[in-house]
Design a binder for these strands. Structure first.
Lengths: 246, 246
DNA sequence: CCAAAAGTGTTCGCAATACACCCATGT
DNA sequence: ACATGGGTGTATTGCGAACACTTTTGG
């Protein structure tokens, strides 16, 4: 969201270096917005918050808010996510998607927002934060991208960019197991890929590819419980190399 | 640079919606910085400007400046580039690299900058803009990345990110011929790739790859003048499909 | 024994690589 | 004739897709 920050009186720090004209620039509001994504039940979903005040009152929007005076952008994103949803992330796991600064993007004032993408491990239900977020919900990305669920501001475009970025990262960096619990089966990992890429993947080829990739995942001694109608029990795997204690 | 914008008096637009507290956010300065890259003499170079005032007076920095009140971010980048270097670009050819908002990145005040990457067609020498840029020069990217040439602010990191992005774009989108004149030989295109990727490419394979790629380049009837020591004259090519008039 | 799911083997086709070779020009 | 650079042919290799097959469990 682009609002909802406690009042803060602040002026530019003194002293200013000589030759600097304080009227030489336009003050902007700078916010961060977070696209928190998770895969649940083979569906890619993202966390939205229902706005409690104008503009776009009652509409769904991304969690976010104003950057504080002495706060890094990524830190602000992690803080806002925690405040509005109760989800804690490390700033390292946040990926900057881009910045959005159309002069008309917020009808109230000139706001530039920096969007961050984040990944959560299988949230089953949307957590409610302690902040002023009226309502939070996990919605399928497909609902947003099909325009069945309109978003406030230019958040639709931010979501598109975040999903594009996620798909690109999926193939290069091994971001997929960030969607999985600490121990997971190859099937779970494959279903994450399938949900994000919107494709069906050959289970055999995926198995080889993912187990063959050096240092990507390592097997444990444990097995996953078998399914209801039988089937060979799957090996449980962990992210990374065995020696890399995490 | 993160400075040098004419004074502008501006207040937030009226009326403000009820419930909005104008003191609820911290005002930031928002700037754009441009990483203008070009390939000249088989070397990837970028345009720098020597700062004429503190901080970092006398240091090399990226061209850039404050975003104006009613200006889009990409528009601001194109304007600053034009003002400081005389080079005109379309906003569509600018690629947003990222935003940089460390609280200490500018000692004067809180500044968030949005960096854009741009590509120029074979600048032989650095153009001098009409603005207050004291001095402009094309320097090899290698000079910057080897720390032989230090930059002001966090511009070194911005350059690294822009170059990384350029390399990634080179293989996916066909940005390479943005470095070439309207008509070019396959050799020129290959030397652009080699300069950016820092590799040697097989000329034969490159020829096939680039000519075989559907809709990428189209041949003209013209031939390039042959070299000093002879050699078969090369076909001149244009970007895109033949039917796509540009 | 049969169904279901995990995991392996086998084949095929494409695309990138390496490099030999032919073509067109200047000296 | 020879050097130089443009452009094509061809063999090899590696990798991903398709899919048959084996293994291990529950009913």
């Amino acid at each position: 969201m682009d609002t909802d920050c406690p009042p803060a009186e602040r002026r530019w720090p003194e002293p200013r270096p000589a030759g600097y004209d304080p009227g030489a620039f336009t003050p902007f509001a700078v916010t961060v917005d977070i696209v928190l994504m998770t895969v649940v039940q083979r569906q890619l979903k993202l966390l939205l918050i229902r706005r409690g005040r104008p503009p776009y009152e009652g509409a769904w929007a991304l969690p976010g808010g104003f950057v504080k005076p002495d706060e890094d952008l990524a830190t602000a994103a992690a803080r806002e996510l925690l405040e509005e949803t109760g989800i804690s992330t490390t700033t390292g796991s946040l990926r900057q998607i881009g910045s959005y600064g159309d002069p008309a993007r917020d009808p109230r004032m000139r706001v530039v927002t920096v969007a961050y993408g984040a990944v959560a491990v299988r949230l089953e239900e949307a957590p409610r934060g302690g902040s002023d977020a009226a309502e939070a919900e996990l919605v399928p990305v497909a609902e947003v991208q099909s325009d069945r669920l309109p978003l406030a501001f230019d958040h639709r475009r931010i979501v598109d960019d975040a999903v594009d970025r996620l798909r690109a990262d999926l193939e290069t960096t091994g971001v997929a197991h960030s969607f999985c619990p600490p121990e997971f089966t190859v099937r779970e990992l494959r279903e994450v890929h399938e949900a994000i890429l919107q494709t069906e993947l050959d289970s055999g080829n995926f198995q080889r590819k993912v187990t063959g990739r050096e240092g990507y995942i390592t097997p444990t001694e444990r097995r996953a419980p078998t399914g209801e109608r039988g089937g060979r029990p799957a090996t449980l795997w962990r992210a990374g190399r065995p020696e890399d204690a995490e």
